[in-house]
């Protein structure tokens, strides 16, 4: 997971703040190589360390950066793949929420040595959910929060999504058909 998140941090910083800031972050981290490969292995904890340094260099709280990265992964048109893979989760936003528990298993089907976070969804009331996300990565909960926010938009659902205590995310669906959902066809538009 570190590799995927490191690459995400890299893409997010490069696309949002430009090359100079990314060089600055890598230099501050003492990283000789400035490209993280999503398919290689990196020491665990490196992603959190780089994000902490990025927070310092960019002058923003690391939580906000992780959340932005989560949103960026879903909404960036160049990385449409993530949004599409998540949309396979279900027809509606609540379907999608329920599918999150299956997501780590699905992800392992494609990448057997991936170490995805453990996800547990509890329905605590009508349209109210508690999502627990267990991962050795400190940033994971915030990344997931950002992703959920973006996916709610994608499904056209109006939601309140906020980080709760520890690894918990609280989700309240206020209106599941607040806006038109973005189109989703099962086959990729271009082969």
């Amino acid at each position: 997971m570190d590799a995927l998140l490191l690459r995400s941090v890299q893409n997010y910083v490069l696309d949002t703040f430009g090359q100079a800031r990314w060089h600055e972050i890598c230099a501050a981290a003492g990283q000789p190589v400035q490209t993280f490969e999503p398919m290689l292995r990196y020491p665990s904890g490196l992603a959190d360390r780089i994000a902490d340094i990025a927070a310092e260099v960019l002058g923003r709280p690391v939580e906000a950066i992780w959340e932005d990265i989560g949103t960026y992964l879903v909404t960036n048109p160049d990385r449409e793949g993530v949004r599409r893979l998540l949309r396979f989760g279900g027809v509606s936003f609540s379907d999608f929420l329920h599918s999150l528990e299956e997501l780590p298993g699905r992800a392992r089907l494609a990448l057997p040595d991936l170490d995805p976070p453990e996800i547990l969804l509890t329905e605590v009331g009508p349209d109210r959910y508690e999502l627990r996300c267990r991962s050795p990565l400190k940033g994971m909960q915030r990344v997931l929060t950002g992703m959920l926010t973006a996916m709610a938009d994608d499904y056209g659902a109006l939601c309140l999504i906020e980080p709760g205590a520890e690894d918990c995310i609280l989700i309240t669906v206020l209106d599941s058909r607040y806006a038109e959902a973005r189109a989703f066809e099962l086959a990729r538009p271009d082969p």
Binding site: R84, L85, F88, V91, R106, E185, L186, A187
Partner: peptide, 22 residues
């Protein structure tokens, strides 16, 4: 241009397409 609505929920169609795409 099939969507989830074109398959019964019990079919593995979505899983297959998810895997192919992943």
């Amino acid at each position: 241009g099939l969507t989830d609505a074109d398959f019964a929920a019990t079919e593995l169609a979505t899983e297959v397409l998810f895997l192919a795409e992943a």
